[in-house]
Simulated assay, not measured.
Amino acid sequence: MSVREIRLLGDPILKTKTKPVRNLEDARQLVGDLLETVALPGRAGVAANQIGVGLSVFAYNIDGELGYLINPEITFLGDDRELIEEGCLSVPGLWHRALRHKEASATGFQLDGSKITISGSGLMAQALQHECDHLAGKTYLDRLEPTERKIAYKELRSQKWFLG
C-alpha cells in the first residue's frame, strides 16, 4: 500500500468512464492505495482514475471516517440542492460553486463481497456525488453553471500545472 500521485486535469484518464471491478480480490492493492492516499490531511475523497487506474473504486475521508466503495452507484439524491464551494485534488488551487444535492446515498461493495450503502448530508453527500462523477469521467467543473464554468476555465488556463 502506498500514497499515489494525483493525476491532474488534462490527463485523459480523468475524462474516461471507469470499468467495473470484476474480481474483488484484484482490487485489494488499489483499495489500500486509495485509503492511504485519501488519509492525507485536507483530502475528502479520491477516485481510482485520479491515481491513474481505470476501475470503479473510490475512497473517502469525511470527519475522520475513512472508507471505500467498489463499483459504487448513486442510489438516492435528496430533492434539495444548493450551490456549494467545491474543489478537487485534480484541479488544485481552484474553488467554485457547484450545484449539489444536500443528501445522497451510494451503494457498492467491500473487499469481502458485502454490499453496503453509504448515506450522508453535507460534505459526505458532496463527496459521494463528486467521486461518482469522477468514475463517470466527469469533474466538478462539468457541474458548474455556465457563467461560473467560463470563469473557472479562464482561471484554469493560467495555472502552471494545467496540461490542457
Rank of each mutant, 00 (worst) to 15 (best):
L14K: 01
F109D: 05
L66E: 14
L156C: 03
Q129D: 12
S121D: 10
K150M: 10
D63S: 14
E155K: 12
R43W: 09
T16L: 11
I74C: 15
P20V: 04
F162K: 00
K154T: 10
L156W: 08
G78I: 11
P146M: 09
K160R: 05
A59F: 01
L163C: 07
D11V: 08
E131M: 06
G10L: 01
Y153W: 06
E103F: 09
Q126E: 08
R81K: 15
E86D: 06
Q110L: 12
Q129M: 04
Q159W: 00
R22P: 10
T117Y: 02
A48M: 14
L135M: 12
T139P: 05
I70M: 15
L141V: 14
V31A: 10
L40S: 06
Q159H: 01
L35N: 07
P92E: 02
D79L: 14
A98G: 04
V3D: 01
L14R: 01
L35M: 13
R22K: 14
Y68S: 07
L94F: 08
E65N: 10
L141C: 08
A106P: 11
V3E: 01
A127G: 04
R100L: 06
S119H: 10
T139D: 04
R143P: 02
P92V: 00
I118C: 00
G54A: 12
S114N: 15
K102T: 15
E25H: 12
M124E: 07
G93F: 12
D142I: 03
E155M: 12
P72G: 05
V21S: 06
E103G: 05
G54P: 13
I70P: 10
H101Y: 09
S56D: 01
L99S: 05
V46C: 08
L24G: 02
L128T: 04
R81N: 12
G108P: 02
R22S: 15
L24P: 05
K160I: 08
G45A: 11
R22I: 13
A98N: 00
G113Q: 09
W161T: 10
E73C: 13
M124F: 06
E82G: 14
A106E: 12
E73P: 12
V53G: 07
Q50E: 01
D11P: 01
A59S: 14
A125C: 08
L66V: 15
F58Y: 03
N61G: 07
G108M: 14
A39M: 13
K17F: 00
I13L: 10
E86G: 03
Y68K: 14
V57E: 07
L99R: 05
Y140I: 08
L141F: 12
R4F: 04
G67N: 05
H134G: 06
N71M: 15
E131F: 09
E103A: 11
G113S: 13
D80H: 15
